[in-house]
Amino acid sequence: MTVTLPNPAATAASPQDTLVPKRTAWAAALAFVRRQPLGTFGLVIVVVMFLAGGLAEWIAPFDPEENDFAAMMEAPSLVHWLGTDQFGRDIFSRLVFGARTALIVGFSSAVLGGVIGLVMGVASAYFGGWFDLIFQRVLDVLMAFPLIILALAVVAVFGTGVFNVIIAITIPLVPRCGRVVRASALAVREVPYVDAARALGFSHSRIVLRHMVPNVLAPFLILLSAFVGQAILAEASLSYLGLGVQEPVPAWGLMLQGGAEEYATTAPWIAVFPGLAIMLTVLGISLFGDALRDAIDPKLRDR
């Protein structure tokens, strides 16, 4: 038996609905650009990064992993726009492919960590009691470690490589998401339609996944955008410490490590450009995330 519960908000039509025409997506985007110039700047950076990562094969003028001993540590020139590194590899090409590595690690970790944290956080709020108590203490333990320290510990156990780095960054993100989402879900748990769903005998998983999760998506999406930046930064840090992605895979942290330690004075471009790429990307994601929060959160929207 299926029961459709009437939504009072939907049935009580606002008089404005009939007077103000609905904004198109284009108009909404323009409004976003006008209201959030910094956020738009961040969005542009994110889009450029996506394009670079997605179209790396077509954008990069050289194979990012090909050693060219005839061109070792060449300064930026018309041939090598951002110069070459100690193995003669084109830095621009490595940056472009490095964007892909950053995207893969950043988005995979953020989405994976976020989704697991979302489900667990909502479940914790929904079930409450002992389950909530124990689950929250586990989160307390995990959150006692700074993200990078926990990621380092995980890499020490599982080893290096792209897949392991994703796992290493995902694990510390889970409690961070779980804690925030639980707070929102606690409020949702008390609303009548959850009680109604319970009364109608819906399964726990259905209530959690279909009725509670969609209602905490707004804070979750904002959190997700922050996680992407954090994950990219964590990946760069792990690679910088020699515990993330390994040579010759192009990765910004790895490029920075190779350049900063040995060639900071003799060939500074080796470290400067990947450093700039990391900084701009994290800044871009952060600005976009802030703007997104302002746009989505009704309390901040009209400020």
Binding site: E65, E66, N67, F87, G242, E247, P248, E261, E262
Partner: peptide, 13 residues
């Protein structure tokens, strides 16, 4: 790093 990782990276190439 010296010279293990340099040698390894060269060999892979």
């Amino acid at each position: 790093d010296q010279p293990y990782k340099f040698v390894g990276t060269w060999l892979i190439g």
